[in-house]
Structure formats: structure tokens, C-alpha cells
Write a protein that binds this DNA or RNA. Structure first.
Lengths: 159, 159
DNA sequence: TATTGTTATACTCTATAACTATA
DNA sequence: TATAGTTATAGAGTATAACAATA
């Protein structure tokens, strides 16, 4: 945004480690993008009577059933939170708790039909995001997908 | 991810409007990226004794003082939330409330020295993000910055 | 009248610690 | 002993509604 170029990078390995201060401008852009996406997602979730955390949980469960502990790891929160979040989703019939056949300690959370419908409606309702994506070319979307996958998804499944 | 290609796009304008279902895979990637970035940010914030929301507020204030109402809009939350968030940041000396010279209803929130130091430390502490960014080439970072800016920042300042 | 910021309220999220039941 | 899930607790975030001060 300034004369120092959008991709400047202070390559000072102050303590012998890797590059410490990498690209302030890009960090700003990533941060702002996250806040915008968060806003669009929260708006769409509220329209379904869901909180941000509930929406995240439902979205993860689109990929298949998951144990409570696994959900906590994926959502970067303590396992005790998941109990309440799943409690509330289960009370609305959006998910079910099923016993694991292999480990009687484990409860697998399964996305119910109503939950699947709600999360699909939510995803379709992220209008600002969809409109922005429509403004990119096919090639640009492929590039973005590739870069973001390398940045955030590839490593170990979300840092 | 599947045989349907990473950039497929169901171009069905079901109700005469714009393209409704755009790129499920890319939405997934964006969502996962947001969750990962959120996780890294929260971890770095916790190390500074800050919550995610407090960190977002401090980061916005890096760009200069802002009225309460403006902070609420930028952070996509109700104005009544900001009162509490700024209360807690002010109690720790991270921000100050200053009266607006032009409108006696308005209070401008100013980043204090300790707050500026805390947010810079926080940003430097987002190790997972920095390491990921270091793995991209200069050109790739420029491309990512450009694409994200068009997607999320350019429009109207965060949707 | 409309807007800015605050307060009161109720609900949700969040981490910590302690607990039960399994492994 | 270690792990999965729950409960209790306290602090923080969140939106709604009502309010005072100012425009």
C-alpha cells in the first residue's frame, strides 16, 4: 500500500532462526481477509440461527463423522467446549452422538439431515464471498486454491 | 480433491440472478484457511494475554485512532460489544478513549504505547503463518496479495 | 428525529480443573 | 497410567433493547 512495495520482506534472522519478520503487508491482507470472511460467515450463520462455532462444527462434519476430541483439535479449542456446542446442535436435531464400535470411550458425532441442509443453506448464503469469487477468472481461482492449500491446508491439516 | 476438478463451478443461475453455487472446493479451502489463521492468531494472542477480539481491535487501531462505532463496523459486531472490549484494553493501558474535537458524542480510541508493542509482538508470534509465507516465492506472495485484496479488501473495506 | 456511546440482560463461547468410564 | 468425554466454574464475547447526551 506504500512505497515499500506490497511484497517487501525484512530478512533479518535476529536470533539465527528463520526469517522472523516476513511481509507485513501480506500479513495485513491475510488478517483483513480472515475478518471479512468471518463476517460473511457469521452473517450467513445468524440467518440460520447458528453461531460461528456451531457453523464451523457443522462444516467439519460435512466430511464425515468425527469423535469429540477430533472436533476439538480441528476447531482449535478445548474439548470441553465441544460438549456444549454439540449439546445445542443435538437439541435441534442437527447432529447425533453415536457410540464408536471400536472404543467405548469415544462418541462419533454424525451430521443429521437437518444439519446437512442447514450448513448447505449457510454456505450458499455467503453472498459476499460468492460474488467476490465470481469476479475471478477460472485460472485465478485455481491459483488462489493452490496457494491457500500450500499455506494453510497442506501442512498437517490446519497447522 | 476429486475427479470434478478443483475449480469446477456450477453455473446454474437458478433464479435469474448471478451464479449461485460457485466453486465448492474453493469455498472449503477459504474456510479452512480462515480457521487455520484464526487458530494461529488466537494462539499468539493468548501468549500476550489477549483474546481474539481484543487482538482484532488492537490490530485495527494500528492504522490510527477510530471511533467506537467505526470499530464495531470494521469488526462486524454490535457497538455494545466494543464498549466492553475497549473497557478491558483500557484497563490494561493498551488503548485510550479521547473525545472527538468535532463531535462531542464521539470517542476516538487511540492505541497506547503498550498496546502497540503488544500487537507487534503478537503479529511476530504468528509463527505458523510466517513459516508458511516464507515457503512462498516473492512472486507467489505478490500474486496472493493481489488476489486476496481483490476478493476481500478492495470492495468497500471488508464487504 | 437521528446518531453515538453506554448499560442491563440473556445466551454462547472459552479455558481450567476435577470427575467418570474406559483403554 | 493414559485417554475420551463430561461437568462445574469464571471470565469474555455477542445481540437486543432501552437509555442519556449530542447532533
Amino acid at each position: 500500500m506504500s512505497a515499500t512495495s506490497g511484497t517487501s520482506r525484512s530478512a533479518q534472522a535476529s536470533d539465527g532462526g528463520h526469517l522472523e519478520v516476513s511481509n507485513t503487508a501480506l500479513l495485513d491482507t491475510l488478517w483483513a481477509s480472515m475478518v471479512s470472511l468471518y463476517g460473511d460467515l457469521t452473517t450467513a450463520a445468524t440467518a440460520q440461527g447458528l453461531t460461528y462455532s456451531q457453523a464451523k462444527a457443522l462444516n467439519v462434519l460435512r466430511q464425515g463423522p468425527a469423535p469429540m476430541r477430533s472436533l476439538a483439535a480441528t476447531l482449535h479449542c478445548d474439548a470441553s467446549n465441544i460438549t456444549g456446542i454439540i449439546d445445542r446442535l443435538e437439541a435441534r436435531g442437527f447432529v447425533r452422538r453415536e457410540p464408536s464400535p471400536t472404543d467405548r470411550r469415544v462418541k462419533n458425532v454424525v451430521l443429521a439431515e437437518d444439519g446437512a441442509a442447514a450448513v448447505e443453506t449457510l454456505r450458499a448464503g455467503m453472498h459476499a464471498t460468492h460474488e467476490s469469487l465470481d469476479a475471478l477468472s477460472e485460472e485465478e481461482r485455481a491459483t488462489l486454491q493452490s496457494l491457500l492449500t500450500r499455506l494453510f491446508v497442506a501442512g498437517d491439516g490446519g497447522f
